[in-house]
Design a protein around this nucleic acid. Structure first.
Lengths: 166, 166
DNA sequence: GTCGATGCAAACGATTTGCAGTGGA
DNA sequence: TCCACTGCAAATCGTTTGCATCGAC
């Protein structure tokens, strides 16, 4: 299975990737400088891991992958919170309610189809749906800031397997 | 403020209410019997509280209101889980991430506008939106079971107050 | 050198579970 | 009567925080 397909956008070629990484780093260091914070080893490693991951990561994925560098759980939590605050990453509700994270920068807005059997998260773009939603909010005088639109069910693979098994 | 307006549907007249309550109880007792479970005082009280509430309740609301009957937190959690499992109630993500619950039975599907300032939860029906969503899932071979569509932002009252205060 | 960041462990808040006693069918 | 249900307290889970030390600037 090609996990890459599950991401709506991810730089494909090596040069695109290099440029993307560079832009991410610039935004990150600017954010850090603006707030009197520092670019440290653990922060760099976590960001690097996101850049290489191409899928939705849990806190455990990150901690598990980076513990060999002696990075503690607290630091992972602290950094995730920070990256979310500066809008470089986004969080999605995974199956079992545990949050998963995705790179956010320069990626078009999308919603999520979450498979309750295998936990796979598929991204979908629905521009038409977003438009309807916006206008409806306005009718209520409600000023939307962000939203969460997650659909839980069975993905194509799992529902195929399930009906074959019967 | 009339909180009732925030619910898309709730039986209005006394007789409608009585019938609704009767149907809820029948479904609940049937569910209990089917699983070899019992209709106990605490369970009855919690259900009763939902029937009278007409708004989105947190676990704390329920515990707080019923502690005078000596009902423990564990029982509230256990019962909420059970009611959710038999689909009599639904859970919505409140502000601060804590779940809130609503009666689910015989109520048309709706989404939620959640005010990040006052925590108020407003319900919206979007039949057109639901239709688009359904058809898009089908295109992916994804079989939706349930979804969560929550929009966070400022409600009409709060955004008015906020701009007046400036 | 300064002061923010780190890892560790302890603290925390929400939820769950073990258990002995209680009560619904 | 029987066994599910209860409240309580202890346990657990994910996350946060206090603190002494470390390291980026």
């Amino acid at each position: 299975m090609n996990r890459d397909r599950e991401l709506v956008f991810f730089p494909a070629s090596t040069s695109q990737r290099r440029d993307y990484t560079k832009r991410i780093y610039r935004l990150f260091t600017e954010y850090l400088a603006r707030n009197g914070l520092r670019l440290t080893g653990p922060r760099r490693r976590i960001l690097e891991y996101f850049l290489g991951a191409e899928r939705h990561l849990s806190q455990d994925d990150i901690f598990g992958a980076l513990r060999r560098y002696g990075i503690g759980r607290a630091t992972v939590f602290r950094t995730l919170k920070m990256l979310e605050e500066c809008r470089l990453i986004n969080h999605v509700t995974g199956t079992s309610g545990k949050p998963r994270f995705e790179m956010n920068l320069e990626r078009p807005h999308h919603d999520h189809l979450i498979c309750v059997l295998c936990g796979r998260i598929q991204e979908v773009r629905w521009p038409k749906l977003e438009a309807i939603q916006e206008s409806a909010c306005r009718r209520f005088g409600f000023v939307p800031a962000w939203h969460r639109h997650e659909i839980f069910g069975r993905c194509a693979d799992c529902s195929r397997k399930q009906s074959a098994g019967r």
